[in-house]
Design a protein around this nucleic acid. Structure first.
Length: 271
DNA sequence: CTTACATCCTGATTGC
DNA sequence: TGCAATCAGGATGTAA
């Protein structure tokens, strides 16, 4: 469920929280069954202090000095501040930060995962080594996208969602960025003009920036660590708006499955 | 190598 | 109201 703006907001929430509670007293594993089982050695973490929290792609990285806790939220993963280690269904793990203070990881669909990696190994670990560029960094440019797109036959939307190319973009923001760029999601990648790649890059940065500022998009589950919903839903132009009028031209929004995912676009605005 | 597709899960919603 | 089918913000392994 969460894409870059949502993960970024969760990270910021965690960072805020760790400013006040920086010491993890212990880690409690309620149910280790996630996409990959929670490693047993997380329970060995005792009295460790959090140095830093940051986001890479859709991963949350909690830096503990010698090791990092890596967390991917999958579709339904969330962190919340709680007074006990587990109180509701699908609580998997809790970081004990004080006698009545816990950070609890909950994940109904169990597509998320939590792992521990040596600080020096993070970049080359199995989850990070194939990641593409950060879309909000200076590395994500029109020429970068154009170069990749040049050799690919797949639709541009599939390319944007493939984390090997550029990270953090999922089904919502791929659709939204392509709307802003006025490019139809079905367009074959290698047929895109340089100017279109430029428009896409600009649009991706724009939509991600805007969504981060709005606190992300809450369709259903997504909440920040503090339980806040994201406010970007009201700014969605195409995602989830099948048969609703395009905000720009009143033409009805279309829907079609591309690469196994529902895809929304305006056939008049996007060519 | 690239690309399409099924798959891992639970729960909410839709349709009969 | 009940029940079955469908769908969901992700990413991986497999097969073609």
């Amino acid at each position: 469920m969460p894409e870059l703006p949502e993960v970024e907001n969760v990270c910021r929430g965690l960072a805020e929280f760790f400013k006040v509670h920086s010491q993890i007293e212990s880690v409690l594993v309620q149910s280790p069954k996630l996409r990959y089982p929670i490693p047993k050695k997380v329970k060995e973490l005792k009295a460790v202090s959090v140095k830093r929290v940051h986001r890479r792609a859709k991963y949350i990285v909690i830096d503990l000095g010698s090791v990092c806790i890596l967390n991917h939220l999958g579709m339904t993963g969330s962190w919340r501040i709680a007074t006990c280690s587990s109180e509701i269904k699908h609580d998997h793990l809790a970081l004990k930060m004080g006698p009545k203070t816990f950070l609890v990881y909950n994940d109904p669909r169990r597509f998320g995962y939590i792992s521990i990696v040596d600080v020096n190994e993070v970049q080359k670990c199995r989850w990070f080594k194939h990641l593409g560029v950060e879309p909000l960094s200076a590395d994500f440019t029109a020429s970068y996208l154009f170069k990749i797109a040049r050799h690919k036959k797949q639709p541009i939307k599939a390319l944007l969602m493939d984390q090997k190319n550029v990270v953090g973009i999922g089904n919502i923001y791929a659709a939204e960025a392509l709307f802003l760029a006025k490019v139809k999601p079905t367009r074959v990648s290698h047929k895109l003009k340089f100017l279109e790649c430029e428009a896409i890059v600009t649009a991706v940065k724009e939509v991600l920036d805007q969504s981060i500022q709005s606190g992300g998009t809450t369709i259903k589950d997504y909440r920040t660590v503090y339980g806040d919903v994201g406010g970007f839903v009201t700014q969605l132009n195409v995602y989830g708006r099948y048969k609703e009028p395009c905000r720009a031209c009143k033409n009805l929004i279309r829907k079609k499955v591309i690469a196994g995912r529902s895809t929304f676009w305006c056939s008049k605005c996007q060519r």
